[in-house]
Design a protein around this nucleic acid. Structure first.
Lengths: 217, 217
DNA sequence: AAAAAGACTAACTAAATTTTTAGTTAACAA
DNA sequence: TTGTTAACTAAAAATTTAGTTAGTCTTTTT
């Protein structure tokens, strides 16, 4: 079985010399891509090394084991997602506007890290989510649930099941990117990850979700 | 790791004896689960064999290679999904009811085969979809797009982007099952795959989507 | 009931892959 | 300069895994 191991991140430029932090970051970048595609078992340390422009021994030098590297890779999105949500200050906005803002931010996050959704799915399916400390993700959903409950209390949202709806919102925000490799075959001539297309997806998503939860008058 | 291959198989649940068709089906069942979790590369033939209650040699006896088994596994969902959609006769229903029926059917399909969404993602991400018949997915989306366009023409649906919205509908229908292993950590005490919970998810999904696309009056 | 065919397993090999080892090079302080 | 150490590489060792072989057990055919 032939697989291209060349990462677009690191393929052209020669690496800096002997900068431990930079090297570690490059390994994690390459590893995130490889783990997102192939999961813990399917990922090849050789592919990660090649993507980072180092030898496989460096993985063990910095991360002790393949699993250690995997843990390091998973830590990053968990922290970033948490921080992103904090910064939105959803509590200080009317529910409808808060939801709009959260949906836009979530899709923008996915667009900036299109491979992370799959990383999360791989983690769920292969290791029963044991490395993903549930706290951060509980936080994520808690933020959306809170907005939905507030909207219902305010009377701007209809009566709905906040947890179920928040998962469906997550589905809307992530599907486009998780399934990108699948759906790109549907319209081969359009670049579905171009800013224009992502903006179009975002607009439609906001419209669908807002109309879907709004109280009819 | 020490693995005894001796006497484990005979002492566990005894399989039916020497029924080729039943054995093949058991291998495909176990393989679908393993491939869905780990993809083509990450899947372990030994794990498949153990799941099916046979030795790895049987995989080669019936399917020649790991890849041959993978192809056999992918054939089944492709055919079933196609047939399911045909039987809905969406064209003969008002758009609103057709969409409701399609969403219910899609979620029911996912619930009956919770691992197939991941099988599809793995296939696209790891092998560029070369083993999967793309035609079936084009069909699937075409069906939904047609319903959405009809609804817009009838005036029952608002003006929307049919392709984008159909992907968002797919996100709503599939997320719950693809992410199940992660989601279950959010509410550890609830069985999120019980019929009651799935019905609740379905109801909320239908409400969200219908309200989301309906023409306001 | 003997022979043939089909279903099946234990034990194995070759190759791929992870992990370790032994050593090399650059940086930098004394 | 020179000695020390962190960053790094090449290649060997250990381990895992796909795939094979030779033969056993069961069912069907004659």
């Amino acid at each position: 079985m032939v697989r291209s191991t060349r990462s677009k991140l690191s393929s052209n430029k020669p690496r800096q010399v002997r900068d431990a932090e930079a090297t570690k970051a490059q390994i994690i970048d390459a590893a995130e891509e490889e783990f997102a595609k192939h999961g813990l078992n399917g990922a090849r340390t050789e592919a990660i090394a090649k993507g980072a422009g180092i030898t496989t021994a460096m993985i063990y030098y910095y991360f002790q084991s393949k699993e250690g590297l995997y843990k390091a890779v998973l830590q990053r999105p968990a922290i970033e997602m948490y921080q992103m949500l904090q910064q939105l200050n959803l509590d200080q906005l009317p529910a409808e506007f808060a939801l709009k803002k959260a949906v836009r931010a979530a899709i923008a996050y996915e667009a900036a890290h299109p491979q992370r959704g799959m990383l999360w799915f791989q983690e769920a399916n292969q290791t029963q989510g044991k490395y993903f400390k549930q706290g951060n993700w509980q936080e994520t959903f808690a933020h959306i649930i809170k907005v939905l409950e507030r909207g219902m209390a305010e009377g701007s949202f209809r009566q709905l099941d906040p947890l179920m709806i928040s998962m469906q919102i997550a589905g809307v925000c992530t599907f486009y990117f998780n399934a990108h490799e699948n759906i790109k075959h549907l319209t081969p001539d359009v670049d579905r990850l171009s800013p224009e297309m992502i903006e179009r997806y975002t607009t439609e998503a906001v419209n669908l979700i807002l109309a879907g939860v709004r109280q009819q008058k």
